[in-house]
Every structure is written in C-alpha cells, then in structure tokens.
Amino acid sequence: MRHTISILVENKPGVLARISSLFSARGFNIDSLAVGETEQHDVSRMTIIVKGDEKILEQVMKQLNKLIDIIKVNDFVEQPHLERDLVLIKVNAGKGKRSEVLEIVDIFRAKIVDVASNSVIVEMTGDEEKILALVNMLKPFGIKEMVRTGIVAMGRG
C-alpha cells in the first residue's frame, strides 16, 4: 500500500541520512521526498511517499519514532488530508501544435511559465492523479524534460 509519511524533525545535519537509511536498510525505495522549514526555523517537515510490506513499514515507523532527532511522525493513510506536488514540464510546442498545448494547459488550470520557439514550460500544482493526467495528455507532443518538487501533505481541518 502507498503511505504518505509526514515527519517533523530537528533541522540539523545528518537527520536526512538517518531517516533515509532506515528505509534503504530494509530495501524500501522512497518514491517521493520533500523537505522544508516549518513555521519554526529549527524544525523541518519531511514528507515521504513509500510503498511496501505493511509489517516492515510498521517497524520502520517505530524506528522513525525512536530516532533522536525526530519530533513527530504521522502516517496519513486513512486520514483526510491534502497532497500537493509542483511539476515543471518542458514540452515540444512548435508552430502547428502550440494552440493544442495551450488548450490542455487551460483545461488543467496550469500555467505557461516560459516560451521558446519550439517548446514551452508548463507549471502545475496538484495531487498525484492530476499530475499524471496532465503528463499523459502532454506526452504525445513530446516531453523534453520534467521535474517535480516532491509531494507535500497536510491534514484537513
């Protein structure tokens, strides 16, 4: 099952290494990782997306809780929450195709943030599903490059 794990950590060197090695030592691949400061400058928030065996993941969660630099761990599975990811896609958009690309961008309420003679850069924020849908629509034009910030999550209410 896919898990969105949100971790509050001390903003210190070595913390990311400690956390990522808990996953890698058990053969888990981290699908997405986003780190940033919170409202307190000495506390960071990490959002990690992983899939894997439930029993091992339970152990990883306990180990995360035990790490000395970790203040709080939360698994959003089965909790109402929002997920957002920001994507930049450089897509082929020569003369003949540009209006088609623009139409798709409009439908997704995405933005064009850079225009060159043969390509445009599309920016969009959304959850996993929406981003995958956009990518699928743009694929036929030829995606030259794509970057994502990684998913961040927040509980509702």
Partner: peptide, 8 residues
Amino acid sequence: IDPTSISK
C-alpha cells in the same frame, strides 16, 4: 523500554 523491540 524500547517500543521497536515489541512485536518486531
């Protein structure tokens, strides 16, 4: 004392 030892 170590919760990670329990049900491991």
